[in-house]
Structures are given as C-alpha cells and as structure tokens.
Amino acid sequence: MQYRSDRKGTKLSVLGYGCLRFTKENGKIDIDKTEKEIMEAIRSGVNYFDTAYVYGGSEAALGEILERNGVREQVYIATKLPHYLIKSKAGLEKCFQEQLKRLRTDHVDYYLMHMLNDVQTWQGLCAKGVDQWIREKQASGQIGSIGFSYHGNSANFKELLDAYDWDFCQIQYNYLDEHTQAGREGLLYAESKGIPVIIMEPLRGGRLVQLLPEEAKLLFAEAVPKRTPAEWAFRWLWNQTGVTVVLSGMNSLEMVQQNVQVASESKAGELTGEQMELYEKVRQEINRKIKVGCTACGYCMPCPKGIDIPGTFRCYNELYTGSRKAGKKEYLMTTAFRKKQNPASGCAQCGKCEQHCPQQIPIRQKLKEASRELEDPRYKFMSFVVKHLRIWQ
C-alpha cells in the first residue's frame, strides 16, 4: 500500500474504504461478509474508513467490526455530521454522541460537514455555534481533523475553502467529472492551499465500469498495457498529486484485493500523453450515450411512492450505454415483479428527491422520460399479469 500525508503529517492509505455500499440482505448489512472484506483491507494496509450518520447501519457495522477485532487504533475513522438535520448546538452534541456510540469509540479522526455546498450554509451553522463546538471537540481530542464533503460548482467550492481553516475536504471527482462539480479547478485550488482532498465516486457509482458503452469498453480493451476499466479510472486519480485518498465502496473480497493491488502500484505523474488521450476518447463515448448522470448515491431516497430512483435511472441508462433488452428486463424485474409495484410512472411530482440530489438532476422530468421508454406495452402487460394473477406474491 502507498500513503500520502495530510496537513498534520499523518500517513493515509491512498485507497480508502467507502462504507456506503456494504452488502445488505433483507435491508440489513451482512455483518459477517462485511467483516471479512474490511479485515482483508486492513491487513493490506488500508487505514482510512469513510462512513456517515445517514448511511443506514454503516456506522454501527463499522464500529462493531473494528471493536471485535481489536483494530480501532490501526485505522482512521471518517464520518459526517448531517448538518441539515441540526437545529441547535444541543442537537449537534446529541447527534455526535450517538455517532460515537454507534462507532464504539471515544473520538472521530476525520469529521465532515456532510454535503456542505455553499458559504451561506456554513455561516448559518456558525450562527448556531458549530464553529465553536468544533474547536471545543478538537481541543478535547474527540475530533481530530475537520472538513466537509461537497457537491456543487468550483466557484462555491473555493469560497468554502477560504471560509474556514479546514483540515481536509471531500469531493466527487473522476475522469468523467473532471470539469464538473469542484472539478480539477477545485482540486488544484485545494492543493495550492495545502488542503488534502478525499475523492468520492471515483467510478461514478459503478458507471465507469459496468455501464460503460461498448465502444468505451473496446477502447480500454485495446489499450496498452492491459488494464480493467476500474484500474484505468483509479490510476487517472492517483496520477494527480492533489489527490490524497480515493474512496472505493468495496463489497467483495475480490474487489478489495484488486483495488489494493492497483493502489500499491499507481504513482503520480505516471500516465503518458497517449494514455491521457485515451481517457478523452472514452469520455466522449460515455457522454454521447448517457441519459442521466446519476451516481446511485441514494440521497434522493426514500421516495414517498416507493420508487427506486437510482435503480430506474440505471435501467434507463442501460438502454443507451449497454443492452436495451437487459435494461428493460432489469426494470421489469425490479419494479413489476414484486408485491408492491413501484414504476417510475407512479411519481407524485412532489420534488422531495430533487432537494437532496448532489448531481442536481431534474429527477421528476427524468423519471417521466424513463417511464416513457421503459414502461412499454410489454411492460404494462406483464405488470398487469403479476398484479392481478398474483404470480409474484
């Protein structure tokens, strides 16, 4: 494993463990499977684990696994404050203490303001005493480094970096998002200020692997040296000196082992001009066919009508980036073949989802578009059969 240092000189593994996508069975995290994967990562040198208050069950699962294996002091825990749920300083303290309890620890190494996207929001938090509370927690040792996770444009990102003496920050960044959200401009600005940058969504929620257009897959397949699409995506990030840690939502031993191998070999400045041109060609192929820039982060959920919004967009994009037959089949299986059907056409247009979407996707409009293409006569017939003949209940 390779390591890059934060502002305090702490060496962080260049590969971090994103804890949002732990494997779940019947809505609950598969703790035994997750334990095997986390312990494999730790044995391989991964020492940065990223979770959040709103990642259902994630903090508790991570805390339990670290405690029962006696490895809490071998790793750094990063978790996030859901500031959008906080109404007072007392509420802030209550939330933090609940997080400590879930994580079975007395301190958080890296604490983030979750989805802090503009200076005005930060100023509002300061008015509630959050900045003073942070200083108190850092003085007591209950919080190590303070930062924020960000979804927004580069201009607002730079303003936020200047608004407080942050220890680190976290942005969505990958070769497809090079010039969107904080983007390369934001990354370079953070680097100029000596602020470590943690990268989330390096594979765009898997889009840069499973849902690549066939033409893009072919470009990677013909490239030299031979690398998987995931490896190309990771190496693009580690090629940049401003990137400190790249998070990966690993949920299989094979994924852990493969990512660790790539992280152990990748170095800044290693990519050639020809290889950088390859990324541009792949990017052009992706943008030519993609319909919705959803990363499957799940912030739009739950939908009041039970619609699986990320799942719907995954199937919709599959129509154009992969197989139309596969996209329609998956949509049918995941929306119609269930006791309570949840097609995109059931959207109530409430707009709740759009208030929380980091990608600022016009979800209601895109659900309409997806419904028009996915819910064809065959879908409607099969949905009717399942519902009225109760063959799936």
Results as ranks from 00 to 15, higher is better:
Ser5His: 10
Asp6Val: 06
Lys28Arg: 13
Asp32Phe: 13
Ala41Met: 11
Ala41Val: 12
Ala41His: 04
Ser58Lys: 09
Ser58Phe: 12
Ser58Asn: 08
Leu66Glu: 12
Asn69Trp: 03
Gly70Tyr: 09
Val75Cys: 14
Pro82Asp: 15
Tyr84Glu: 15
Ile86Lys: 12
Ala90Gln: 15
Asp109Val: 02
Asp118Ser: 03
Gln123Trp: 05
Ala127Gln: 00
Asp131Cys: 01
Ile134Gln: 07
Ala139Asn: 10
Gln142Trp: 00
Lys158Gln: 07
Leu160His: 09
Asp162Asn: 08
Cys169Glu: 00
Tyr175Trp: 08
Gln181Cys: 05
Lys193His: 10
Ile198Asp: 08
Met200Ala: 09
Gly206Met: 00
Ala223Lys: 02
Lys226Phe: 03
Phe234Asn: 02
Trp238Gly: 10
Thr241Glu: 12
Val246Cys: 05
Val246Ser: 06
Met255Lys: 15
Asn259Arg: 14
Ala268Gln: 05
Gly269Trp: 09
Thr272Trp: 12
Glu277Lys: 15
Arg283Asn: 07
Ile286Val: 08
Val292Ala: 06
Cys297Glu: 03
Tyr299Gln: 05
Pro302Asp: 05
Pro310Cys: 05
Phe313Asn: 06
Leu332Thr: 02
Met333Ile: 02
Pro343Trp: 04
Ala344Tyr: 03
Gln349Glu: 06
Cys350Asp: 11
Lys352Gln: 14
Cys353Val: 06
Cys353Lys: 04
His356Gly: 02
Gln359Thr: 13
Arg364Ala: 04
Lys368Asp: 07
Tyr379Lys: 01
Phe381Ala: 07
Lys387Met: 13
